[in-house]
């Protein structure tokens, strides 16, 4: 943690357990504004838990997370957007209304009226034209392909102008060709917005391709008779801008060197959650 205490996102001594079962232990890390951080690791290694903690959807059992010098408030809010693998858009709203909802939901009744609504609908149409969904603006999300739905979900999250975008395996359910196009789409959006992004993925090439940094979550302590006895932590922090050469010393990889990284390469196992 040799970094500046005023980092944009800082995680200190984070522990999380569900009941008696530890998920994360001693997670510490900082990120600067505008960084794209990929998070990889084997199934059940707490990647998604870490993302939920960043989102403030759940509270850690120990430690704290600071964003821009302020501790999290205890529930999700507009400063951190999220895209899940599924169920990220609202099925009962048309494609356009899904974008309008990014403005409307924060109103007292959850919707816009009159001229404000018309203006928001026009802005939404511009956004949709920009991301190639203008021609399906009046359809419902169920009639879109998986890639289009995820594009809509990302555009919806960005329409709320969050400071941090969290992606939980956003392309996990897409076929390889669509996935490639989504990578281009995300890289373009990112170049425009300079947003801070955290992305959980199972796909190592994807993690290195999109990320500035790649964090590897793994268990450093391992009890073969009780695999759930210990939680996971960050075991590698790669600089992905330079071909993936580590710029930080692995935290405790000296004795059990190979386990962490190879474990996480056994990847195409679907995550349970």
């Amino acid at each position: 943690m040799g970094r500046d205490a005023m980092s944009f996102v800082s995680v200190e001594d984070l522990f999380q357990s569900y009941g008696k079962r530890p998920i994360l232990e001693r997670v510490a890390f900082t990120a600067e504004e505008g960084e794209f951080v990929s998070i990889v690791g084997a199934s059940g290694c707490g990647k998604s838990t870490f993302l939920r903690l960043l989102l403030d959807q759940e509270r850690p059992t120990r430690g704290r997370i600071m964003v821009d010098g302020m501790p999290l408030t205890g529930e999700p809010n507009r400063s951190r957007g999220i895209v899940f693998q599924r169920y990220s858009v609202f099925p009962h709203m048309t494609v356009r209304d899904n974008i309008v909802a990014a403005e409307g939901l924060s109103r007292p009744l959850g919707r816009l009226f009159g001229a404000v609504k018309r203006a928001a609908r026009e802005r939404a149409q511009t956004t949709l034209d920009h991301i190639g969904l203008g021609h399906v603006a009046d359809q419902y999300p169920a009639s879109l392909s998986g890639g289009m739905q995820q594009r809509l979900a990302i555009a919806q999250a960005l329409a709320a102008k969050p400071r941090i975008l969290l992606l939980d395996e956003p392309f996990g359910a897409l076929d390889p060709g669509t996935r490639e196009r989504m990578h281009v789409f995300l890289q373009e959006l990112r170049a425009e917005t300079k947003m801070t992004v955290f992305m959980v993925t199972h796909d190592l090439p994807e993690a290195f391709k999109l990320g500035d940094r790649v964090l590897v979550f793994d268990k450093v302590r391992w009890d073969p008779t009780d695999p759930e006895a210990y939680g996971a932590t960050i075991t590698y922090d790669f600089d992905a801008r330079d071909g993936g050469i580590p710029y930080q010393t692995p935290i405790s990889m000296q004795e059990e060197d190979t386990h962490g990284f190879h474990g996480s390469q056994a990847q195409p196992v679907a995550s349970p959650g």
Partner: peptide, 9 residues
């Protein structure tokens, strides 16, 4: 959760 990140009460 998504609705909350869009600022919904």
């Amino acid at each position: 959760v998504k609705a909350q990140t869009l600022g919904a009460s």
